[in-house]
Nucleic acid binder design. Sequence first.
RNA 1: GGGCAAUUAGCUCAGUUGGUUAGAGCAUCUGCCUUACAAGCAGAGGGUCUGCGGUUCGAGUCCGUAAUUGCCCACCA
Length: 840
Amino acid sequence: MLETKYDAKSVEENKYDYWKESGYFKCGNKSKNPYSIVIPPPNVTGKLHLGHAMNVSIQDIIIRYKRMQGFDTLWLPGMDHAAIATEAKVVKRLKDQGIDKYEYGREKFLSACWDWTHEFGGNIRDQWAKMGISVDYSRERFTLDEGLNKAVTKVFVDYYNEGIIYRGERIINWDPEAQTALSNEEVLYKEIEGAFYHLKYYIEGTDEYLDVATTRPETLFGDTAVAVNPEDERYKKYIGKNVSLPIVGKLIPVVADLHADPEFGTGVVKITPAHDPNDFEVGNRHNLERVVVMNPDATMNEDAGKYVGMTREECREALLKDLEEQGLLIKVEPMTHSVGHSERTGVMVEPYLSKQWFVKMGTLAERVLKTQENNEEKVNFVPEKFEKTLTHWMENCYDWCISRQLWWGHRIPAWYKGEEVYVGETAPEGDGWIQDEDVLDTWFSSALWPFSTLGWPEKTEDMERYFPNDCLVTAYDIIFFWVARMVFQAEHITGTRPFKDCVIHGLIRDKQGRKMSKSLGNGVDPMDMIEKYGVDALRYYLATDVAPGTDLRFDEEKLTSTWNYINKIWNASRFVLLNIEDLDSIKLDDLTDEDKWILTKYEKILDSTIKHMDKYEFNLVGMETYNFIYDDFCSHYIEFAKFNSSSPTTKSVLYIVLSGILKMLHPFMPFVTEEIYGMLPIKTHESIMISDYPKVDETKIFEEEERVVDNKIEFIKSFRNVKNENNISKDAKVMISTDDEIIIKMLKLQDVMITEPMDIHSYNVKANEYEATIYFEKQVTEEELKLKEKQIKDLEASIARRKNLLANESYVAKAPEALVQKERETLAKEEELLNSLKDR
RNA sequence: GGGCAAUUAGCUCAGUUGGUUAGAGCAUCUGCCUUACAAGCAGAGGGUCUGCGGUUCGAGUCCGUAAUUGCCCACCA
């Protein structure tokens, strides 16, 4: 027997292992149509946060729904090796043990990374189990496993041969802490307090100087020119002359370049081609030398003269002091400007000239843009507006720097011997070849995830069956990083989109709308919430609280009310189970109006639920089923059923509706629905998760009875309202126009019904075809009279509005006939009600 | 600078293709321990849907415009 209170812990116990061991998560039934989703692989180093909880909840809802609908569902799990993130953590752990990465050596370091992976991967799997997600563990992959490595290498080699991947010297974002290149997306810009330092660059052989404003004086050792705008009258005369680099004394030319904006600063820009991407371009246009003045760890190198060995910051300080002493510093103008910082290590990114591998984006992006114009072939974003995020990125993308100066990752399959470069899946023949030390950007391998996990480049059955994936679920902040890359990679490599639908959800914020972060200390651990409210409550809340794609402000109070909702379902089930214990077969031969009414409501809500599920509108599913369960099922039908509880037909209806509710809710709250399903007297399947999702049964829709019972309910509500509003005691005598049993029982009128009017105060209640007069002793207070007046006034206003509307000829002519008819009926009802109110 | 959103009850949010009197939860007020549930039940109050203009018989919904807020991208020598 069920406890009177829902106890999440006991309900959730053991079920996950039971499902898993029964093989319910596994795909492969060839007699069914396939449906596939690949999980966005979480970083192996990480801990699942609420965002992950939301992400996997949504996917599990989709997959459980499709599974129950009879699809052969594959939900493929896996994790990401997260090159820089993991490497940073392992480096730190070794450092704490007094071990230096480079002294330790590549092989031992990688083995430490694998240890870390195995240690933390287990945590993630435990948390997945807590979330109840039905992933097929037999297909689990890792972005750095052997198969994926093969795929990554093949793509690299093919791209190289096609000329899509190239090696070049560019200004890249350099992380001096991790000592690696970063892609644009791995750089976060922060507003910081800085200054414009105005320096004197003397014109050669004169005592005239140019006022050069810079935020980065320490890069002046790398200056190889000064640029002015060719149209700038102030400086035209200096073009072609030389200026003397302060402190250094080296002569560099003044060049004319549009990059110099006369409106900005002093209109004179120092050009440092090796330390600024714009200057690099200017340098190319004017054939300037590129002088790198820093070491990879952002200390100054020998080109910085006496400042060699200092850090960027030390050098700036010392240099400014010297400049000032020599009278070369004109002024310091404080300003805030945004400066790039490494997403992972947090240090200031140094634009740095270096040799890196790049993916040429042009043709790849064009193909995506073209595909997105074709409705049959494009990736369908849900909500649709996120498609713009993708296309906008594709229209404005830069070549992608894919090499990382790390060890943990897919090693670049390139070998060098002197000036020779060899790119291939295996090492070249002959001696003297040295493999590139670098690895690939993590996103290069995760971009292949939708198909590399299915065995590509082999022509596997899985690839044939589950690719393209049906759906991908992720948050909008990951569209640039990952979604975009999966799309162009899949389209170029496999010739098709990676997935048909891309369901985008929002981010989770705290109650005040701030991002959850360690520094604010406002993070919430999903595991704590599961401990307190159960995972069903957490899943339901995360999946249904907000419209698709919008951010969710996490509010623990809502989790409490979700718990209450589950408790309501629990208790409604308890009532049903208590009453249908002896039910052994479904009998629907003498349906009452009320039975027909709830069946109709149920079929309608089912129909609507399926439509919303198919459009991933889980918030609407939540709202509609909630209203159905609370109002129609619990408040009304269960109350009706209490008067009729021995009827086999009513029992059958209770059974049908309850089991339908359980199935509709199962994807959202798998544990509690499984628990209750297990107690049903009639079961078609061993587990609800492999049972059939209900289908709409048109023969159980009874429009007329639905209307009849709706009218009864409306009357019941009006009656209660009048009694409540007027504080009328329970035993007030009532004369009523109907002998409808349900109405009489619901209103508890059995002992107070009279047939003759009484000569005391009374209220008249009228709704639809039902009418009642309530007699009471108490004097009518002034307050109550005012209330009545207000009701009459409101009603009169409404009638006037409606009359006006119906008098409008163009409304009657153009609005749908049914609507006009309904307006007329409502008007009639209102007029009748008004009369009865006045009668009281 | 470019782009994308948002603005609805005290708070957090819903509101499908325009169509009765705009809905939930929490909070507030009134009355109830009515044997599924008091973490409950029966009711109530609370909104000129950010402002202005337009299209329409009809606008929270479509168009324009202003304000405010948020996010993303680029740039900031």
